[in-house]
Amino acid sequence: MNRNLMTLSGLLFFALGNNVQAGDLPDKQAELKLAAPAQDADYLKMRSLATIPEGVFGDKVRLGYQLFVNTQQLRGQYVGNELNCVNCHMDAGRRANASPLWAAYLAYPAYRKKNDKVNSYQERIQGCFTYSMNGKAPESGSEPLVALSAYSYWLAMGGLMDKYGVTGAVPELSDAELLKGGKREDFVLPEAIAKATTLDERAKLPGRGFPAIPKPEQAYSPARGEQVYRAHCQSCHGENGEGLAMGGVYSLPPLWGPNSFNWGAGMHRVNTAANFIYENMPLGKSVQLSHQEAWDVAAFVVSHERPQDPRLEGDKVMELSKRYHQHQGYYGKSVGEGAVLGTQSYPINPVKQ
């Protein structure tokens, strides 16, 4: 493993000294259309991590896994908050209906209306670092992007091979091929898989994304959501959404405030948060929230101030809101007697104190 990735004590790039313009940060977080979870779905089954091969390719896969579950290794370079990728993509990115990596890899490249281009898999990951991790996108072709792509590919291809009876090790790909993603006609597949599935079927595997739940019977309410939060979420995520840290290491993630995802992240949408919460929370699901409770608590969580949207130019919050935030969210709006959200946001990619 590159030791620089394990010893990122140098604070190399921060928003206060960042000359990147908002125009360089198009919306790469536009959400995909989701469906309700399939009944009796035949989800891909993941190979044991112990079967990751030895050698150069296996080292890339292992590094991708390590960065995914402990993304804080990249704090001060590409990460600016206290989150890890695994906080939203459960079970090391392997769990169905928790936006698993194996399904995402096979869904890219994909066209995004809001930035009017086809995004490769590495570009999708870059967007996650910019927004969900409140940091800086790794450079195209960089070691972290190759590693995360290799891990995603290994999960996807291993699952497909096992499902369709293809034995042996996952075929190795070059770095350039790994970074593209698997939704393309020239993506190399074993013959048995290519014959049994279409490109579109592989891009829409059961378990992909956070399955959509029904719309709430009542309009979602941050006030009602606070009651749900106090009853079911506060014990893990803190009274003020600050998460749980021991010895400076967060075991449970902050949901708002300076150390959480920023206003550009997909999770700041009420519907995205509601879908995730209903399917995956509370952790362990000893209590199953109702659809209404999931919508309400999602509204409560995302109606709090958080780090700024990196696309903001100057103090034009309302202008940015009209351009990028015409969806179920609270950026550019006030809740109760509070200030307009986005006007008192926290820094992007800050120096860790």
Rank of each mutant, 00 (worst) to 15 (best):
W154C: 10
T7M: 12
E319G: 06
L25K: 07
Q353R: 03
P347S: 11
W154F: 13
L341G: 04
M46W: 01
S48F: 01
L12N: 06
S286F: 12
R306W: 08
K352M: 03
M46E: 07
E123G: 05
E177W: 03
V69P: 01
T167W: 02
A274M: 10
E319K: 14
E191G: 05
G80F: 11
Y153L: 09
M246I: 15
V118D: 10
A104D: 02
F14Q: 14
G80Y: 11
Y164H: 14
S152A: 15
F276V: 08
Q308N: 07
C233V: 11
P347I: 04
Y151I: 06
A15P: 00
G93P: 14
A92W: 12
R208P: 00
Q292D: 07
N119I: 11
M318K: 14
N70I: 00
V335I: 15
K195F: 03
H232G: 00
V301D: 01
P347T: 05
K45G: 00
G338C: 02
V340C: 03
A219P: 09
Y111S: 04
W295K: 09
Y330S: 01
Q29A: 10
L16G: 06
N259F: 02
T130K: 06
N87V: 11
L34C: 04
Y153D: 10
Q66R: 09
A339S: 05
Q344H: 11
G225K: 03
M6R: 07
S48H: 03
N271Y: 02
T7P: 00
G158C: 08
P100Q: 14
A339G: 01
A231Y: 04
G314Q: 11
G141C: 10
N97L: 14
P171C: 06
R95L: 15
V69A: 01
L25F: 07
V69H: 00
E279L: 15
A35P: 01
R112N: 14
L320K: 07
D59L: 04
K285V: 14
L189A: 13
A231M: 05
D40L: 13
A22D: 00
L12R: 13
Y153N: 06
A169R: 07
H304I: 07
T167G: 13
V118M: 12
L205K: 02
Y229K: 02
R95T: 13
R202Y: 08
D59Y: 05
M267N: 10
S221A: 11
C88E: 04
L106W: 04
Y43V: 14
Y153K: 02
N87I: 02
V317Q: 06
L205Y: 03
D186M: 14
V20E: 08
V56L: 09
E313H: 04
A50M: 11
L289T: 06
A107S: 15
E185Y: 12
E172M: 07
M157Y: 06
N275H: 14
